[in-house]
Nucleic acid binder design. Structure first.
Lengths: 121, 121
DNA sequence: CGGGATCCTCTTTGATACTG
DNA sequence: CAGTATCAAAGAGGATCCCG
């Protein structure tokens, strides 16, 4: 019963996972990599026109440190940097996909998440 | 391929689900309800000593609007309000549990999420 | 007991400009 | 192209007080 979930940040395994992928944009980055394959920095920006370079960099660095994304840099001019999912990133995507499928199933039943959420904009 | 994931908030089903349960504390609330059963307002505060009444109320209201949590009020004095998981809340908990299990498996392999995350505190 | 209303802080984001 | 640095705005979260 007591799983150490006393509210200390990261006390729950679920929360630790969310602390890595819960940030804004993060699910999209993983999704894009999983569905469209490896991407370059500029390609992400084209996929997500409203993300800033700062945040995009931060998210990619974090996913890289978390071992979910691989960063491959070609020493050309201009530089070519390509990001891809690691096996762990792929495994995580599969699990997140389950959440997405539940969302879609519920929405087919009339569920309206937007109505519940206090969206920030 | 294109699943509508252009970065507009909530464009992805996964993101819609995260918009509901991705907020801080939310995973804990669901976890507590799933493992310890129905809880009263004050019980949550005892479980999570650092949460404020404002945020706890907000989260519970949101989970209620999202149909994941049931709020039952007894018209006694003093009032007794009890929160419980709906069937959807239970289904979601099961799916989130998968993420937690992956986290635990990876951690057993040496994965260190804290090292990756830019924790806010 | 179970909150609602405020105020205030701190983090997170976004915009912009510059660089190897 | 792929970032870095800086600044300003926004919003979430915390603390506090009060009420039914």
């Amino acid at each position: 019963m007591d799983d150490g979930c006393d509210g200390t940040p990261g006390a729950c395994p679920v929360d630790r996972m969310f602390s890595v992928v819960g940030g804004q944009w993060t699910t999209y980055l993983i999704w894009i990599l999983a569905t469209d394959g490896p991407q370059r920095f500029g390609a992400f920006q084209r996929h997500l026109p409203r993300i800033s370079t700062k945040v995009l960099t931060e998210r990619l660095r974090m996913l890289e440190r978390a071992g979910l994304v691989d960063r491959h840099q070609a020493a050309t001019i201009p530089p070519q940097v390509t990001y891809s999912l690691t096996p762990r990133g792929q495994e995580l995507h599969g699990a997140m996909n389950i959440l997405g499928q539940i969302a879609q199933k519920w929405e087919a039943e009339g569920w309206r998440p937007e109505a519940a959420v206090l969206r920030t904009g």
